[in-house]
């Protein structure tokens, strides 16, 4: 479960002394057993929001509570409870897929026997049998994403945060990933999923938070958003919600 309350974060611009507001007063809620979509155009503040929720950055203002732990006060407890997958897989090319996953299991202090069992489960679930013991150099985007997802899941986190996970995946791989995400939500996990692709969010999410210019402009169920904006088509609804300026 994720609760974000009025999160704000500014960055110093590289060339000038001025700071740029990345997000401002971001407020939304993601419940357990549901897939929540963080929908917004590129540069809207999706990654910054996810990074704050994953305790990679401290917000300037506001607070975030994940599975009952305050992200600012107890970041380690939050990290034990979450699985985070950034939009670049970032796996180690000289390690095998299994070693990549095992490394994360070790860092999360998953006992050896449990980790072994869990990795076997993940190989099955993500269909990684063909490449699990191969070095990751030259893995396709889909294979990399699978390894990254397995890494994020190896310590069985309650909450899952995925930053544009379908980036660079083909249709079949995207479908496979959607099935996995649905399954995880059905098992009671809280899944937060960021994307800039409307169809993807519509196909997958129970709840949507639309983010534009660093702030949440609307957060509701898919039907709720349609009602609020008065448009049946989600794309139209998105344009209305973001004020047409995206």
């Amino acid at each position: 479960m994720i609760t974000a309350e009025r999160l704000g974060k500014s960055f110093k611009a590289r060339q000038s002394a001025q700071s740029v507001k990345a997000i401002d007063a971001v407020t939304f809620h993601a419940a357990d057993g549901q897939v929540t979509g963080l929908l917004g155009p590129n540069g809207a503040g999706k990654s910054t929001t996810l990074r704050i929720l994953a305790t990679l950055m401290k917000p300037d203002t506001g607070r975030a509570v994940i599975d009952g732990f305050d992200a600012m006060a107890d970041p380690l407890a939050v990290r034990r409870s979450i699985g985070f997958m950034p939009h670049e897989a970032g796996i180690y090319p000289r390690l095998t897929a299994r070693e990549n996953i095992q490394y994360y299991a070790n860092l999360c202090a998953v006992p050896k026997a449990t980790a072994k069992l869990r990795i076997t489960e993940l190989i099955d679930m993500l269909d990684m049998g063909a490449f699990i013991d191969r070095q990751a150099t030259g893995f396709s985007q889909g294979q990399k994403t699978k390894v990254a997802l397995a890494r994020a899941l190896v310590h069985q986190p309650q909450t899952l945060m995925l930053d544009e996970p379908t980036n660079g995946l083909d249709v079949i791989a995207t479908r496979g990933l959607r099935d996995i995400i649905r399954k995880l939500a059905a098992q009671g996990h809280c899944v937060l999923f960021s994307s800039h692709i409307m169809q993807e969010v519509a196909a997958l999410c129970d709840h949507i938070a639309i983010i534009a210019h660093g702030t949440i402009v609307m957060a509701d169920t898919v039907d709720g958003i349609r009602q609020q904006t008065g448009s049946q088509d989600l794309e139209d609804a998105f344009v209305v919600a973001t004020g047409g300026v995206v």
């Binding site: 994953a54 305790t55 990679l56 990290r79 997958m85 670049e88 970032g90 999360c108």
Partner: peptide, 10 residues
């Protein structure tokens, strides 16, 4: 870009 997921670990 492997630092980002690494920093999200406990």
């Amino acid at each position: 870009l492997s630092l980002e997921p690494l920093l999200s670990l406990p």
